[in-house]
Amino acid sequence: MKTSAIKTPSKEIEKDLLTKIDFLTKPKGSLGKLEKLAARIGLIQQTLSPKLSKPHNILFAADHGIIEEGVTVSPKEVTWQQLSHFSHGGAGINFLCDQHGFRLVLVDAGVDYDIPAGKGIIDCKIRKSTRNYLYEPAMTREECDLAVERGAKVVEDVYNDGCNIVSFGEMGSGNTSSSSMWMHAFTGIPLAECIGAGAGLDKPGINRKLDVLTRAWDNFISEKKRDVAGIIPQPGQHVPDTMAEEIMARFGGYEMVMAVGGMLKAAELGMIIIVDGFIMTACILAASRLNPAVLDYAIFGHQGDESGHKLLLQALGADPILHLDLRLGEGSGAVCAYPIIDSAVRMINEMDNFQSVGVTKYF
């Protein structure tokens, strides 16, 4: 897999950023998280006057072979039906993108359907659905590499169009299962704590999901034990970073791996990444196992209502902007958080400082 050349932002400007924020006409710290966001964005962009340009929400869609095991109430055809719905407008992500000035980019990463041309959907299809990882890897390593490359290319295109802040969304029946597997593998958190209701499973459905995913993990470990040269992950420990690509290919979805590639490329280009809910947080986690510097460019949009998301955010040391009990996906929480990010940038650029307006510094 091609290594991303992500540059860690220099800390030299940090002191000047904090000084500028502290001397705005307000008590120090009184604008709370806006001040932290402004400092982070200034650090990412290496400027005392950051700006946001042409926000995009890139939505990758694909199907997952694991749904053959009944891990979701959402039938496979919902993926292509919803992708078509997005292309016509009227879905949740459509009104949010319209409201907040985002361009919505739709990408077929691996939908099990022949999407008609002329719908404005970018064709990056790797294959019609991943394989069933209960029995075999979801994708080959070559497919995984190709998904990373194609996700990166989509981001490069929006960057060349003038975008410097991007969020990612997803559509794919079964992708909360795959995200739970990545979370378990990369954090060591027990699988039972990584699994939630997804699209609406009841308690028996969640128990079935846990059973299927536990067997999938056990099958993987059994294969590693037969491979005497392999590294065998121990219970309660995350897999070594050297196994990151193997885990991505074994349990991932094409849309998830494309998002990983997109995140890595966005960081390489110095873009701000707004991280959405459970699935996209699992993707930034996977991306960080390939290159930890990607997290320097991430702003976490919200804490979702999917079980496990809070634990995943804690594992990353993330401080999300919103907590609205969302679990829609599609990039919805990230786009909802954008106005707060915009306010932080407006604060540092548009507020006066004490000296310029002759107000006594009163704290």
Rank of each mutant, 00 (worst) to 15 (best):
P240Y: 06
A229L: 11
I121V: 13
K36P: 00
A244S: 13
G89H: 09
Y135R: 14
L191V: 11
G331N: 10
D145Y: 03
K54S: 15
V257N: 04
I321K: 02
V335H: 01
L106F: 04
E255T: 06
L24H: 09
F86H: 06
M271F: 05
I122W: 03
C336P: 00
R141M: 15
L134K: 15
H88Y: 09
L146G: 05
A229N: 13
A344I: 03
I221L: 15
V260H: 09
G32N: 11
W80C: 11
F95L: 13
N353W: 10
K128F: 09
K76N: 13
T214P: 03
D342L: 13
I165T: 03
S173Q: 11
G198I: 01
I299G: 07
N164D: 15
R141E: 14
G261W: 01
K28D: 06
N175E: 11
I66F: 02
G304S: 15
D98K: 15
Q81L: 05
Q46D: 11
C124H: 13
G252W: 01
V212D: 10
I6N: 06
I273H: 06
V359N: 02
A334I: 07
I121S: 02
L134R: 14
P190F: 06
D325H: 14
Y113I: 00
F168Q: 08
S179W: 00
I247Y: 05
E143R: 05
I247Q: 10
E142P: 00
D241P: 05
G120R: 01
D22A: 15
K26C: 07
I67L: 03
L17W: 00
K224S: 04
R226L: 14
I348P: 04
P233T: 02
I67V: 12
I121D: 01
K51I: 00
T187P: 15
I189L: 08
R208E: 12
T47I: 09
I247F: 01
A138K: 09
F186I: 05
K128N: 15
E306P: 01
V78N: 10
T360G: 08
A315E: 09
A287D: 06
V78W: 00
V212K: 08
L37R: 04
A117G: 11
A39F: 03
V155H: 06
D218I: 08
H64M: 11
I66S: 01
I122K: 12
V78R: 09
I232W: 05
I279E: 07
D16F: 05
